[in-house]
Simulated scan of single mutants.
Amino acid sequence: MSAEETLILVKPDGVARGLTGEILRRVESKGYRLVDIRLVTADRSLLAEHYAEHEGKPFFEPLLEFMSSGPIVAIRAEGNRVIEGFRALAGATDPTVALPGTIRGDLGRDWGLKVQQNLVHGSDSSLSAERELKLWFS
């Protein structure tokens, strides 16, 4: 089978808590290849384009505010079924119910804020991965 690529983001909360290395370790331990890594301070236009499908929703502005609150580590990862595999590795969006053994289940928690700070993002489909990788690695 041919390898696919995905975008993984270590969000500002993960970077601020010093979890980037642990997250990268888990990605590599799963057998995925890190193709490119960048430390990025994302501006509003990049974030608005990345999260365009959420525009108009009540959490859109708090999400952009959170994602622009500090550095983000953008990762281009490659591997067989890496999109599906990383999303399983990341765990449920809500860290409170994310299973132990997942990134969010082991390292995340609900901080009671306006927007869920859940450490990582992973593309949800091959179409999303293609679009998101162009945004973050143009």
Score class of each variant (00 low, 15 high):
Lys11Met: 06
Pro12Met: 08
Asp13Glu: 10
Gly14Asp: 00
Ala16His: 06
Ala16Tyr: 03
Thr20Lys: 08
Gly21Thr: 06
Ile23Leu: 05
Leu24Tyr: 04
Arg26Glu: 00
Glu28Val: 06
Lys30Glu: 06
Gly31Lys: 07
Arg33Ser: 12
Arg33Ala: 13
Arg33Leu: 15
Leu34Tyr: 05
Val35Phe: 05
Val35Trp: 04
Leu39Asp: 05
Ala42Arg: 04
Asp43Ser: 11
Arg44Cys: 12
Ser45Gln: 13
His50Leu: 10
Lys57Asp: 01
Leu64Ser: 00
Glu65Arg: 14
Pro71Ile: 11
Pro71Phe: 06
Pro71Thr: 04
Ile72Arg: 06
Gly79Tyr: 09
Asn80Arg: 15
Arg87Ile: 03
Ala88Trp: 06
Ala88Ile: 06
Leu89Lys: 00
Ala90Phe: 07
Gly91Cys: 04
Asp94Gly: 09
Leu99Tyr: 05
Leu99Ser: 13
Pro100Asn: 07
Thr102Ser: 06
Ile103Phe: 05
Arg104Thr: 01
Gly105Arg: 01
Asp106Ala: 03
Leu107Phe: 05
Leu107Tyr: 04
Gly108His: 00
Gly108Thr: 04
Gly108Asp: 03
Arg109Phe: 13
Arg109Glu: 15
Asp110Phe: 12
Asp110Ser: 15
Lys114Leu: 15
Gln117Thr: 11
Val120Gly: 01
Gly122Gln: 11
Ser123Leu: 02
Ser123Asn: 10
Ser123Asp: 15
Leu127Gln: 14
Ser128Gly: 15
Ser128His: 04
Ser128Glu: 14
Ala129Arg: 02
Arg131Leu: 10
Arg131Pro: 00
Arg131Glu: 13
Glu132Trp: 06
